[in-house]
Write a protein that binds this DNA or RNA. Structure first.
Lengths: 207, 207
DNA sequence: TTGTGTGAATTCCTTCACAGCG
DNA sequence: CGCTGTGAAGGAATTCACACAA
């Protein structure tokens, strides 16, 4: 299904379609159209149809898309048919905030462990999660076979942590520090969440 | 200088150039080239030169760009010649984490106020910041003439808060909730930071 | 010689417009 | 009819390649 080389920009829109479809689904709506979806997302209907057509024809001519089916299909494309276990590195405010956030599970992710290097934090709980010693990071991640990690440590430690994660077999890193992380391993996906990059982008349009 | 209609994608790269230039600057490096910058950012040199040429010719043929000058120019383009005051709405873990983060100031932003609706939190301090009653949001934001806000409230309240912010004169909102915020006012810039959208994007490339 | 700035070429992405199916 | 799926057209963004200035 996702054999061909799908443009990254197409993939990046699928999660947006998904969250909107799930919202409609929660309202017990069963069908939608590229028109309706486009209006909700501020994306042209043609764009949505073309994006979906990369993967097959999921709609019915004249009547649109079955929402449950389209949710299923998109989750499948994005490999969200399974729940991904997640490790959080750094139990500061951001790390703890992420650990306590309850929105992960029904969108395909389950927080499994939380690491810190502060002896006062190690062993403590954050919600249902225990904080583990970062020195055990590699062993635990390998044992639990975790592939996805969030990095929320002080920026000075970010690259070192990333290296350890990659060595432990992590394949996707979401980086909350303002450091460009690199991996020698080219099959690791790294994305950055730097709020200041976004703010600096917005200020261009002000004034 | 930024009169013409510059593609948004060009603007979105300028903060990345800036953070890299600042990093070089901290290492006391005075000059760089589109080649060097491109290697650091994984962007082609031609792309960088073309982006910068939208705003003028800032390099010297044969020798490249003066880093202090280019930093100055980009900050100027992005309206970062002034420091923007910022309000944070929501003093949960994420809001507090943002409030305590010390990286804002030297990148052009200064956290000025923090709001919450929890009586137990109102009046407390988070670092140097005091938590204010969200009922005073509009008055305080107007009085302080704040234009930039971070929203880190539970998602059920996100749109209501955004409406209040817009009414108080906020022009840029960085939204940490997984809700698509809208503004009747089209001169308000809203960007979303939803970690799950990013994670769902990454899982496509796994397995 | 080096590395910018930029038209031209190319590649990529979006939108159009409509045949065709339900 | 209504709405999808899709070739073809159009538009945007990236890359090429080179004249030119330091």
């Amino acid at each position: 299904m996702n054999e061909k080389n799908i443009p990254a920009i197409v993939i990046s829109r699928l999660p947006k379609y998904l969250i909107t479809l799930e919202k409609l689904h929660n309202q017990e709506i069963e069908k939608t159209s590229s028109n309706e979806l486009g209006a909700l997302l501020d994306i042209t209907p043609a764009q949505i149809r073309k994006d979906l057509s990369f993967f097959g024809g999921f709609g019915k001519k004249g009547s649109g898309y079955s929402i449950p089916n389209l949710i299923h299909v998109i989750r499948d494309i994005l490999n969200l048919d399974i729940v991904w276990d997640v490790a959080i590195v750094g139990a500061g405010k951001i790390g703890q905030g992420l650990a306590l956030y309850e929105g992960f599970l029904n969108r395909g992710f389950s927080i499994k462990v939380l690491f810190d290097n502060d002896p006062n934090k190690i062993g403590q709980r954050v919600g249902v999660h225990q904080i583990y010693d970062i020195r055990n990071l590699q062993v635990i991640i390998q044992d639990l076979n975790i592939k996805v990690a969030l990095v929320a440590v002080p920026q000075a430690h970010a690259q070192k942590v990333a290296d350890q994660l990659v060595q432990a077999g992590i394949k996707a890193i979401l980086n909350y520090t303002p450091v460009y992380l690199t991996s020698p391993n080219s099959d690791v996906v790294i994305l950055q969440i730097d709020p200041i990059l976004q703010l600096q982008n917005m200020t261009y349009y002000l004034k």
